[in-house]
Design a protein around this nucleic acid. Structure first.
Lengths: 235, 235
DNA sequence: GAGTGGTCTAGACCACGCA
DNA sequence: GCGTGGTCTAGACCACTCT
């Protein structure tokens, strides 16, 4: 049986509470000692849970004061997007699947190095076009290794976060990664999708995301129209 | 007196050893228990030091095996750069200061929010043009708050990392930050510096970097020619 | 089986913020 | 002065890797 460590359990609880609004933005989390008492844990364990929340940007700690709740900007996967005009809420975000998940071989010249197990298993491939405020903002293609993902290709991903699906159905979480970023002239086919002119500057990202499953990486290539919206990131 | 915590001391030692080649890439660090004995610490303290190294990408841990030493790509400040042709070593990196550090007021429409203490202290401003392989790759302007930085404006920064200077002379370390990234058409004056055509796509970054000094943030704006080199990042 | 890192307990003292 | 988070000790048991 796969039992979750205590600090992860507490992390999940607090994360859910913060995101669902149990704690107001700017308010204080219960103190570390209170959390110890509430959940029957010791301080190092509680602190381990809080550390992950700090890493997520969900809380900021201040010595002598407490843990301040923050609500990081609306995030799409690991990308965060800032609108030029208004804040972005869930309702303004839309996902259209251009290519439903299919099983394929990995391309010959795949831009990242693959482990043997990944290469042998083949890839699940999908393409998406994502809208903010009703306008197309970026187009991405994604590869994930076809390892132990029952029924994945038949799941509906329309208007759902790929990462949220992996998280809730398969207990797969992104815990790091690497990426290359370039500014390029938009090729014609992508420009048509993004409703911009061929040759307009777009952000081009290649990213490899590592997960809590050893050797299970997710690969994305993204064309992003940064004229209307901005990529926002923490590090 | 500002005495450094034990785990930071150990972190600094190990970091120096890894970077200076005492440990080979791919080899194992001494085990956690060995490090305990060597430095007279307990495991949680040693683990805290190792955690920072993991965060830096300098080691990767494997349960049942050990801590594997890695050498992350050549990094310029927090940016990492990959050449299109060859690997980049120190000797291929050159910095030219276009505007030596001067003390200024903050601009009216500064793109990031400033704390009161930062705004009151004024800014140290500098501009740099940075070369890789003898070619200009990016141009940056930097603002740092004029707080407790004796003799900073008279220091030579040519061919030295700004961050390394802050680290070694003032014990200031970057520990996080946020940034906005866009692809834009290069304006004429910047294009001249980067030796590209006006209107060519360039990466445009606005970044705010937090440090171990509470309320001391470094602000950079960067124009990056991503045609010849790529920005590489871990997260 | 021996050694590794992963998790956890039950305390302790300190520096900092706030009233 | 009190409560907060920051650091640290001295153990313990477990899961995993390697041989």
């Amino acid at each position: 049986m796969n039992t979750m460590p205590q600090y992860r359990k507490l992390y999940e609880i607090l994360r859910r509470h913060i995101l669902s609004g149990v704690y107001e933005e700017g308010s204080l989390l219960p103190s570390e000692n209170e959390l110890c008492a509430l959940h029957g844990l010791t301080r190092p364990t509680v602190r381990q849970a809080l550390e992950s929340l700090v890493k997520d940007g969900l809380i900021a700690k201040r010595q002598g004061k407490g843990s301040i709740v923050r609500k990081p900007p609306q995030s799409i996967g690991i990308l965060s997007i800032e609108g030029t005009a208004s804040a972005i809420g869930d309702k303004y975000l839309k996902t259209v699947i251009l290519q439903k998940p299919v099983i394929r071989k990995w391309e010959e010249n795949f831009p990242f190095e693959l482990s043997e197990i990944e290469r042998e298993s083949g890839a699940i491939y999908l393409e998406r076009l994502r809208y903010v405020d009703g306008k197309p903002v970026f187009y991405d293609i994604n590869h994930l290794p076809n390892i132990n993902l029952p029924r994945f290709t038949s799941r509906s991903l329309e208007n759902r976060s790929l990462f949220e699906t992996l998280r809730s159905h398969y207990q797969i979480r992104i815990n790091g990664g690497e990426q290359r970023i370039q500014a390029i002239r938009c090729p014609e086919d992508i420009a048509a999708l993004l409703k911009i002119k061929k040759g307009d500057p777009v952000l081009y990202l290649q990213r490899k995301m590592a997960t809590n499953r050893e050797g299970f990486n997710i690969y994305s290539v993204i064309w992003f129209n940064s004229a209307s919206h901005t990529i926002f990131g923490r590090f």
